[in-house]
């Protein structure tokens, strides 16, 4: 048994008329994820690598209990997250770089707010706040409104407030998307640090270098299924990761 397991999940969406136009399809339903399985253990970073629309966000949102798969199961420490979502949420964090915090609040206020919602008690909270704020250099800006922070500082604040409860499982959708190099570096360094502290991390990305630098294991996801999976060296063999990725991409285009 692995710490976090995703077993054969499937998720179908009903497409709105607007979406059918965008995706250039007549079919009303879209299978975003079909028979997807993977696992991750503590002390490990697992990467889902795939192009736009492959189903990465859908897979990660399912793990984060935000959406329910039509079929299959997801378990954390042997307990299904589908039937025990409240308990699962105490152990996970879900992050995305698309998060835009409300301009009006200060990092300090938001940290306290999310701590209370995560049932973190005050002593724990203050200790966590001190650690995270000094790690990301937020301490000097703790009382500055989010709207007045630089975009890098905003991202670091989102990261801090998503991790108030010191979760064992960190689910990160596109961790470096749209970040400047410095902030991206802070984020990837921190993920590595979390891994070494014994946290389990699942991230999604379409950037090959992120996978090459960070991931212990990787699954290449195309059209809702994992086409190849394993440690970095298993997946790429003698070839270059980029070549493997593109040859898989070509295959799936042929199949379609």
């Amino acid at each position: 048994m692995h710490d976090l397991e995703v077993r054969d999940i499937r998720k179908t969406f009903t497409l709105s008329r607007k979406q059918r136009k965008i995706e250039k399809t007549d079919s009303k339903r879209k299978v975003a994820v079909r028979g997807l399985s993977f696992f991750v253990n503590r002390g490990e970073i697992y990467g889902l690598l795939g192009p736009n629309g492959a189903g990465k966000t859908t897979a990660l949102r399912s793990v984060a209990t935000l959406i329910n798969p039509d079929r299959g199961d997801i378990s954390i420490d042997g307990k299904s997250v589908l039937s025990h979502s409240l308990a699962a949420r105490r152990k996970i964090a879900f992050l995305t770089t698309e998060l835009k915090l409300d301009d009006f609040f200060t990092p300090n206020y938001l940290f306290d707010y999310f701590s209370t919602l995560h049932d973190v008690d005050e002593t724990m909270r203050e200790a966590r706040k001190k650690t995270l704020f000094s790690k990301f250099g937020i301490d000097r800006f703790a009382e500055v409104k989010v709207g007045d922070l630089s975009s890098g500082m905003k991202q670091k604040t989102s990261l801090a407030i998503s991790l108030v409860h010191d979760p064992d499982f960190v689910i990160f959708d596109e961790p470096t998307n749209g970040l400047d190099v410095l902030t991206a570096r802070t984020v990837t360094d921190y993920l590595w640090e979390l891994r070494n502290e014994g946290k389990a991390i699942i991230l999604s990305t379409h950037i090959l270098s992120v996978v090459e630098k960070l991931c212990d294991r990787v699954g290449i996801i195309l059209d809702g299924t994992i086409k190849r999976e394993g440690t970095l060296s298993e997946v790429r063999g003698d070839a270059d990761l980029e070549d493997v990725f593109f040859s898989l991409l070509e295959e799936s285009v042929h199949d379609a």
């Binding site: 949102r61 984060a64 209990t65 935000l66 409240l86 308990a87 949420r89 105490r90 996970i92 964090a93 879900f94 995305t96 698309e98 998060l99 835009k100 915090l101 409300d102 999310f114 919602l117 995560h118 049932d119 989102s158 407030i161 998503s162």
Partner: peptide, 18 residues
């Protein structure tokens, strides 16, 4: 709608809050 638009709704929804 603002929370949905900014994406903070997801952050709120992953907290153990009914």
């Amino acid at each position: 709608a603002g929370e949905k638009e900014r994406g903070t709704m997801a952050t709120l929804l992953v907290t153990p809050t009914r």
